[in-house]
Computed example of a mutant assay.
Amino acid sequence: MASIHKDIIIDANPADVWDAVRDFGAVHTRLVPGFVLDSKLDGDARIVTFSNGMVARELLVDCDDARRRLVYAVISERIKQHSASVQVSAEAGGRCRLAWTVDVLPHDIAPYMNAQMDQAALAMQKALARSAKVDPVLRPIARQNV
């Protein structure tokens, strides 16, 4: 299984970032606007339309406010396995770290997922950073354990 890890530093209050992450149905307006064009809730799932035209059904697995951790899975005919977790923690200077991990099969989809996650990370920083004057720092850590 391929594991892709992203550590994203965002110049924003961790509580504000967590509030956007946990708003499962508003990923297109609060977390990654422009990268995700639309999101519709369907029970415990959301149907997400990405800017590249792809559509995914993402099932909410867990939303833990105490740990600021959200877990979801993608349900798809193309993807055998997809589970993801997003966790928000405080960093120095009032910034935060968003740790995003995706485990995916088949292996050959990992490079595509990695590139998509990089684009999403940039969209997050742009949407959530406190000030347009501050250049957010992206520190992706992409590891594929195969």
Rank of each mutant, 00 (worst) to 15 (best):
F50L: 14
F50E: 12
F50C: 09
S51T: 04
N52L: 10
N52C: 10
N52Y: 09
G53F: 10
V55H: 07
A56L: 05
R57T: 14
E58P: 08
L59N: 08
L59V: 04
L59S: 04
L59M: 06
L59W: 01
L60K: 09
L60T: 05
L60A: 03
L60C: 06
V61T: 09
D62P: 03
C63A: 09
C63D: 04
D65V: 02
D65I: 01
R67M: 08
R69H: 12
L70I: 01
V71I: 07
V71Y: 00
V71R: 04
V71P: 01
Y72F: 11
A73M: 03
V74A: 12
I75H: 11
I75K: 12
S76N: 04
S76Q: 04
E77Q: 04
E77L: 07
E77A: 08
E77Y: 00
R78F: 01
R78A: 10
R78I: 01
R78T: 10
K80P: 00
K80S: 10
K80F: 06
Q81T: 12
Q81C: 08
H82M: 11
H82L: 05
H82Q: 13
H82Y: 15
A84D: 06
A84V: 03
Q87N: 00
Q87S: 06
Q87V: 08
V88A: 15
S89W: 08
S89C: 08
S89D: 14
S89I: 12
A90D: 15
A90T: 14
A90I: 08
E91K: 14
E91M: 07
A92M: 10
A92Q: 13
G93A: 10
G94K: 08
R95K: 14
R95A: 12
R95L: 02
C96A: 01
C96D: 03
